[in-house]
Amino acid sequence: MSPVWYRVHRVRRETHDVVTLELTPPEGAPPCSPEPGQFNMLYVFGTGEVPISISSLPSDRGELVHTVRGVGAVTNKLIALQRGDVVGVRGPFGRPWPVGELRGRDVVVVTGGIGLAPLRPVLQHLLAHRKTFGHVSLLYGARTPYDLLYRNELLAWRDSREIDVEWTVDRSSGVWNGNVGVVTRLISRATFDPERVTAFVCGPEIMIKYAIEALRNRGMATSNCYVSMERNMKCAVGFCGHCQYGPTFMCKDGPVFRFDHIEPLFQIREL
C-alpha cells in the first residue's frame, strides 16, 4: 500500500510539543473515511513513518486531522511542518472504538495526555447524536495546565452542558484554579450507572491500568471497558510483527480492545 501525498492545510499549536495538522488530499485521491479510534501511517520524506491516530471526524472534503506530540525523529519533523508542506498518508488502519454499541448507554471517557486525541472524534460523535446516549462524562488528565489539549473545545463542551467534562492536572501552577490530582481520582466522583455504562480509556499504559481498577471499584464489568493500546507499529497490516502483543497485532487486532480480551496480557510484565 503506497502513501498518498496530502498537503498540510493548517497547523494549530496545542502545546509546546503538540500540534494538530489538517491535511488536504490531492485531487482524485481515493476517499479516506476513518472511524474514531483508527490511525493512519504518516510519512515524512527522508525521515520515516509513524502511526498517528485520527483526531477528528472526517470532513466532507476528505480532510484528515491528526494531533501529534513530538517525541522522536519523525514526530518532531511532523510538528515542525508548515502550511503547504506535503506528508505521505497510508490508512486508515486498525479497529475503531465501538461507538455503534453505545446506543442508550451511559458513556464515560477516561483519558490522559495525548490520549485525548483518538477520543476526540468519539466525543464529536456523541455530541452530534447526543439524544441517542445516556449520561456522558469526559474525564481528562494532563501533566500541567500548559499541557491541556483542545482548551477551547473543552470549555465549549463543558459549557454546553450536554456532557459532564472534568479535567485535572498532576502539577499545578500559581494561577491554576482547577482540579489537581491524577485523572483516576475523577472516576470516583463521576456520575454514571455501573450497570449500563461503557468506558473508553486511552492514555499511557500505566494510567490505563489504574483507570480500569478505579472503574472496577465503581462496580463496572471489564467487558464494558475498551482501551486503546500503543506499540511500535510499522507495516500497519499485520505482516511485520513489530507491534505483536501476545497473540495479537496492535495494528490490525487493535489499537482498540475490549479490556477483558487482553486482561491476561496486561498482567505480563515487559510484554
Binding site: G112, G113, D170, G181, P204, I206
Partner: peptide, 9 residues
Amino acid sequence: QLLDFYTLE
C-alpha cells in the same frame, strides 16, 4: 502523581 504518567508517554 510521583510516577509522572505523561513523561512516560
